[in-house]
Simulated assay, not measured.
Amino acid sequence: MNLAPAAKVRRTLLQHKRPGLDRTEPRAPRAGNLTEIITHDTDLSSMPLLMPLLAQLSRDDRWFAWVAPPALLPKTLLTDAGIDLGKVILLQPDSTHSVFDLARRALGAGTCHAVISWPGYLSEFELKALEQAAACGDSHGILIRGREQA
């Protein structure tokens, strides 16, 4: 994938608000838009039904963030599925940012229309926090987890 350096992307994605979106003004409450996909494994190449959805999500004007995918995916697999790699930001956790934290911040920033993450197990508190962040940022969150992590 043709991606910017992680530190710069993380700073840009997580610190800037979407133009025209003033967080000081109260907003009508929205339902968080979070979808969980439970699979027998988390390999995207084994989920052919998901690829058209990801391609559709990559066509929005805002970024499409992928947080901690289980492996680097072949460019050809993604482009053949119609995914616009120019709109995809890859975020990887590090010692100061967990998968949950990156997903929550990307959802809430308003700069991503969709955030797909592979978070592993999440508590009820963490799920609620992701739903709230999705509502705040007007974003779609997709969580891909294996059965043992659900």
Rank of each mutant, 00 (worst) to 15 (best):
M1R: 08
A4H: 12
P5W: 07
P5V: 09
A6F: 07
K8V: 15
V9W: 13
R11T: 07
T12L: 13
T12M: 11
L14W: 10
H16V: 01
K17P: 03
K17Y: 13
R18M: 11
R18T: 11
P19M: 13
P19N: 14
G20Q: 10
R23T: 11
E25Q: 15
E25C: 12
E25W: 14
E25H: 15
E25G: 07
A28I: 10
P29N: 02
P29K: 07
R30Q: 15
G32S: 15
G32A: 14
L34I: 13
T35E: 10
T35R: 13
E36V: 04
I37D: 08
I38Q: 01
I38V: 15
T39C: 15
H40D: 08
H40C: 05
H40A: 10
D43K: 11
S45W: 09
S46G: 06
M47G: 00
M47I: 03
L49V: 02
M51L: 15
P52M: 08
P52S: 06
L53S: 08
L54N: 05
A55C: 02
A55T: 05
A55L: 01
Q56M: 05
Q56T: 13
R59M: 06
D60T: 13
D61L: 10
R62N: 09
R62I: 08
F64D: 02
F64K: 04
P69W: 12
P70V: 13
T76H: 13
L77W: 07
L77I: 06
T79P: 07
I83T: 02
I83A: 01
G86D: 09
G86E: 06
I89M: 06
L90Y: 13
L90H: 14
L90C: 07
L91R: 06
Q92E: 14
Q92P: 01
Q92G: 05
P93C: 14
D94Y: 11
H97D: 13
H97R: 12
H97V: 03
S98M: 14
V99G: 10
F100W: 12
D101M: 11
L102A: 10
A103Q: 11
A103V: 04
A103E: 11
R104P: 00
R104A: 09
R104C: 05
A109M: 04
A114G: 04
S117M: 02
W118H: 04
Y121R: 12
L122T: 02
S123P: 00
F125W: 00
F125L: 01
A129E: 06
E131G: 05
E131T: 04
Q132N: 04
Q132M: 06
Q132F: 03
A134C: 05
A135T: 01
A135N: 02
C136V: 04
C136W: 09
D138N: 10
S139W: 06
S139C: 10
H140K: 12
G141Q: 03
G141R: 03
I142D: 00
I142T: 02
I142G: 00
I144W: 09
R145Y: 03
E148P: 00
Q149H: 12
Q149M: 06
A150F: 11
A150G: 03
